[in-house]
Nucleic acid binder design. Structure first.
Lengths: 111, 111
DNA sequence: CTGTCGTACTATGTCTGTCGTAGTAAATAT
DNA sequence: ATATTTACTACGACAGACATAGTACGACAG
């Protein structure tokens, strides 16, 4: 069975993460589980990839982080909230995806 | 207008190149023009990216190179021919694309 | 009460593919 | 005669993904 290689999906890691915080802030561990679930185990993002994506996106102003204790336990988590700039970036990536799909499929057989 | 960034298409450079030599061998300059044309100027592969893809794929056994003079002029070109292993790799990439598309689109809005 | 598992990260260094820049050289167009 | 197109090669830089390792806290089983 074919698996998704990271080189293929690499351009969409940021987009996938942003999608998952569009409605409400979230944090690393949760995001990684959601990516795994939403993709039906076809794609599992590596921890280091995920956290470095967060810090890169924060540097670029696409997300903002804040610390908050978990509801049940007193454990602290770093939550990330999408900014307006991040929403804009996400939107652009969605448009780019449509274009990319169109282009790539001209080079794919059995389509 | 949105342009395709190399980070997005990066996982498909090799696949696109292989597609263009499925039927007959070709060479760098020709391939680059074909990618530009087939994508309607939406994606232009960089020379260095293209030639390093060739040498990587040759090392991996996906293509074989041979030198040949151009029909009209006496100029020499390096042609690349796809191997059976390359055809197989291409086929796998096509299957992977279907999967990737499915997964990515779950994270894309307005779809 | 001890150890393992799940949660929630951080740090560091390596690797790969892309890219910027530059240079070569022959053929063709102006 | 000169500029542009064709057809590459060499080299170094960089960014994102990854492997590996380590920290720390809570829950839960034996």
């Amino acid at each position: 069975m074919t698996e998704i290689s990271s080189d293929v999906i690499r351009g969409y890691n940021d987009t996938m993460i942003l999608f998952l915080i569009l409605e409400a802030p979230s944090y690393g561990y949760e995001i990684s589980k959601q990516i795994k679930n939403l993709s039906e185990n076809k794609y599992v993002i590596k921890e280091t990839t995920l956290y470095s994506a967060f810090s890169r996106m924060e540097k670029n102003g696409y997300v903002e982080s804040f610390s908050q204790e978990a509801e049940n336990s007193g454990k602290k988590r770093t939550y990330y909230r999408i900014t307006d700039s991040g929403k804009n970036y996400y939107k652009e990536k969605c448009e780019e995806w449509a274009l990319t799909k169109e282009v790539v499929e001209r080079f794919i057989k059995g389509h």
